[in-house]
């Protein structure tokens, strides 16, 4: 079984997690840019973070046989802090990089005017750079926030097939299914979605345009949730081809629209020398 986790914050995970993920079948990840647990106070803090997503993380992942790509953006939470807004001016040069396969995560957190400005500006950047977009939906007031998200996406004129709306649940999946955008679901131990509810939605809405992620980050989360969904799918009567579609081919099709997704063989051994520092400690 091959698994592509289309949304996971490996920055906040340990190297052991990469090892466990590989053992569970994870062979590719996309890490969208988000917060650091604690608010940033300046643009330079973003730039070092972006550099890590373009340098250290893919290097660390490759040593465990996992392809690592990223999505870059000013995240919704920090879009409200004027000290961080300057990162929007730095994004264009970062969006040219080889391993950037989307703009993200963008969208709403508290549904403020500042968030909306950053969201719209970054949808425009995605179109200028021919990149798909990963859109976060707010955890508070989710249904209203998702509706407004879809309005902003429509108004931007970006084709729905190039947009992934994430963190959906039973209340919001229907409107996104109707919009033509891709549907993302974050599977968490306590909050967001769980594997059984996810499989119920796959039965109801089918497997097209559906993506499942662990979104593992600073909170209580589990980078193996993608594998659990695959196992529950099989137990519920889905075939191996359905599992492969949701957990591999759909993310490949979505991020592949960037033209930069590189899943060529070679990551198994990694671009390293035997027994490098990470493995040796």
């Amino acid at each position: 079984m091959r698994i592509f986790d289309p949304h996971i914050h490996m920055t906040s995970r340990t190297t052991d997690d990469y090892q466990r993920m590989h053992a569970a079948g994870v062979r590719a990840v996309v890490e969208p840019a988000f917060w650091l647990g604690q608010p940033r106070t300046n643009v330079g803090s973003f730039l070092d973070y972006f550099d890590a997503l373009l340098g250290w993380e893919p290097y660390r992942a490759a040593q465990y046989g996992i392809h690592h790509h990223c999505a870059l953006a000013l995240n919704p939470k920090e879009a409200n802090d004027p000290r961080c807004a300057g990162v929007l001016a730095e994004l264009p040069r970062y969006l040219l990089k080889d391993s950037v396969v989307a703009v993200g995560e963008v969208g709403y957190d508290s549904m403020t005017a500042e968030e909306e400005r950053a969201f719209e500006a970054q949808l425009a950047l995605a179109q200028e750079n021919d990149l798909p977009v990963l859109v976060h939906t707010p955890h508070r007031d989710k249904a209203a926030g998702t509706r407004r998200t879809l309005d902003v996406v429509r108004a931007a004129g970006i084709p729905p097939v190039r947009v992934l709306i994430d963190h959906l649940n039973e209340m919001t999946v229907g409107m996104v299914a109707d919009s033509g955008c891709w549907m993302g679901f974050s599977i968490y131990p306590d909050t967001k979605m769980d594997p059984d509810r996810m499989v119920a939605l796959l039965k109801e809405y089918g497997t097209d345009r559906m993506l499942v992620n662990s979104a593992a980050d600073w909170g209580r989360s589990d980078p193996l949730k993608t594998r659990q969904v695959a196992d529950v799918m099989l137990a519920a009567g889905f075939g191996e081809d359905d599992v492969d579609q949701v957990l591999w081919r759909n993310p490949v099709a979505f991020y592949g629209q960037s033209g930069r997704l590189d899943l060529a063989a070679g990551s198994e051994a990694g671009p390293d020398y035997a027994g490098n520092t990470i493995k040796r400690g």
Partner: peptide, 9 residues
């Protein structure tokens, strides 16, 4: 100063 073996080499 990095810990990327490709860059160090």
């Amino acid at each position: 100063r990095t810990n990327d073996a490709r860059l160090v080499a």
